[in-house]
Design a protein around this nucleic acid. Structure first.
Length: 476
RNA sequence: CGGGGCGUAGCGCAGCCUGGCUUAGCGCGCGUGCUUUGGGAGCACGAGGUCCCGGGUUCGAAUCCCGGCGCCCCGACCA
């Protein structure tokens, strides 16, 4: 157990806060709701960004950058959009020492500034599709901020695309949702449910919102990424039209999709344990930490020489040698466990003499997670172990999620289920039933999963016939 | 915006109720030196403070009173 870390089971949200800060992912900033992402946390974000960016490029997207400030009148062009976001807008009223003629919103999202540009750039079906992504910061004035999960300013990427046909736009929405799900599962080792949002949970102004939903270590749900179908609504609001091959002037079909620094919160809450953070090897800023051990000067040079060789053999991996002289090995073990480095190599005089090293897996704490490996096949063993950790984290997360996902038969079992985790239940589609659940249990519909049983059932709330099963859970 | 809690050294806190016993203290961390180093090392010396801000009461305020500001936690809103 890490010194001074609140156990996860005792107070999960306190545990989360302590891990984020003690692992040096982030810290509070002077302005309420804002945070500083520290180098270690930012390195994690950079890894997320690189991986996603590559996938966006592979699916034909280009990066661009749109401005931070949006004239208020632009936001007002789409009624539901402005209504949804106005409570959380930061607005600039002065510039250059003078009151502005028109106030500027600090973007809460960029549809309203990108739309008018697309209107200008798109004339013909030959200009379509437009497939643009931007990496940016956005600001939403939140009532209750939490590090990474809900901060006033956060970093994200937002893809914005325009298409000639509904079918093409819908394919885009699904494609990007698949990209996110693949990324979450294969890189972050986080299993997710893919599905559509209920009307109540749909992005302001969107015709439909899709998301990937993950279960955190306390059984609550977190929306890890979203993909929105705007139909032709935003195109109408911003006058994004094109002349089709048949000569007709039509409105584009537009989409947007995003993943934010909130995802880091998901990684922390899915994999962490009472010792601290556990980072999935494929995203960890430091995949392997080497802790050299020595007693005297002679041992020190022998050990360090062996360490340099190991470091060279681990080429291609992100390796950190912790050769700080003012900390004991035991201290370093604990610190790197707190900071979530997936794999640790311990090597001292005894190991050097025996031409071996000790591998310690972060996902298996204590003695069971340690393995003595001959130096000759250390490199292979390290790579193999990192893969094994990646797989083990995914499997553990999936087993946990499955064990806390119930299919309750009646309302009493349902309320028990959402107190602990996910409840997969039939829903008639009525907003009243959705609201009742929220009022009585605080759980909401996280998504309507794509995968549905063949036959229908009865609504868990009102008992009327229902065509769809949905996932209810308390959410972040 | 409601309900609760807290502002004292870099961090975590004690002192406040019952004003003076403190030159404002303790633990961790930090600096220097020596001894240490296979699961959070030991000793010695040392540096570090507008006691959140402003006013008031008093011979005297970290402590009592009034006003402000800020932060955290719990609810309503949310990626």
């Amino acid at each position: 157990m890490a010194e001074g870390l609140t156990p996860r089971g005792q107070d999960f949200s306190r545990w989360y806060n302590e891990v984020v800060r003690k692992a040096q992912l982030a810290d509070y900033a002077p302005v309420r709701g804002c945070m500083v992402i520290r180098p270690y946390g930012y390195a994690l974000w950079e890894n997320i960004r690189e991986e996603l960016d590559e996938r966006f490029k592979e699916t034909g997207h280009e990066n661009a950058y749109f401005p931070l400030f949006i004239p208020i009148s632009f936001l007002e062009k789409e009624a539901e959009h402005v209504e949804g976001f106005s409570p959380e807008l930061a607005v600039v009223t002065h510039g250059g020492g003078k009151e502005l003629e028109e106030s500027l919103a600090v973007r809460p999202t960029s549809e309203a500034v990108i739309g008018p540009m697309y209107a200008r750039w798109i004339q013909s079906y030959r200009d379509l599709p437009v497939l643009i992504n931007q990496w940016a910061n956005v600001v939403r004035w939140e009532m209750r901020p939490r590090l990474f999960l809900r901060t006033t300013e956060f970093l994200w990427q937002e893809g914005h695309t325009a298409h000639a046909t509904r079918r093409e736009a819908e394919a885009e929405i699904q494609r990007m949702l698949d990209v996110y799900a693949d990324f979450a599962e294969n890189m972050a080792a986080i299993p997710v449910f893919k599905g559509r949002k209920s009307k109540r949970e749909t992005f302001p102004g969107a015709a439909a919102t899709y998301s990937i939903e993950a279960m955190m270590g306390d059984g609550r749900a977190l929306q890890a990424a979203t993909s929105h179908d705007f139909g032709q609504d935003f195109a109408r609001a911003f006058d994004i039209t094109f002349q089709d091959a048949d000569g007709e002037l039509r409105h584009c079909w537009t989409t947007s999709w995003g993943l934010s620094t909130r995802f880091i919160g998901a990684i922390v809450m899915v994999h962490g344990d009472d010792r601290g953070l556990i980072l999935p090897p494929r995203l960890a800023p430091i995949q392997v930490v080497i802790v050299p051990i020595w007693k005297d000067e002679e041992a020190r040079s022998a050990v360090l020489e062996a360490v340099r060789k190991i470091e060279a053999e681990l080429d291609g991996l992100s390796v950190k040698v912790d050769d700080r002289e003012n900390f004991t090995p035991g201290y370093k073990f604990n610190e790197w466990e707190l900071r979530g480095a997936p794999l640790r190599i311990e090597i001292g005089p005894r190991d050097v003499a025996a031409r071996q090293a000790v591998l310690a897996r972060r996902d298996v704490p204590g003695r069971e997670g340690k393995e003595i490996v001959p130096l000759d096949n250390l490199s292979d063993e390290v790579r193999r172990t990192l893969d094994a950790i990646q797989q083990a984290l995914y499997q553990r997360a999936q087993q946990f999620r499955d064990s806390r996902t119930a299919e309750p038969e009646d309302y009493a079992a349902f309320t028990d289920a959402v107190a602990e985790g996910f409840a997969r239940a039939w829903w008639c589609g009525g907003a009243a039933c959705e609201q009742k659940v929220k009022d009585e249990t605080t759980a909401t519909i996280r998504c309507i999963p794509f995968e549905q049983p063949a036959a229908g059932g009865k609504c868990i709330v009102c008992g009327k016939s229902a065509e769809q099963q949905v996932i209810f859970a308390r959410a972040y």
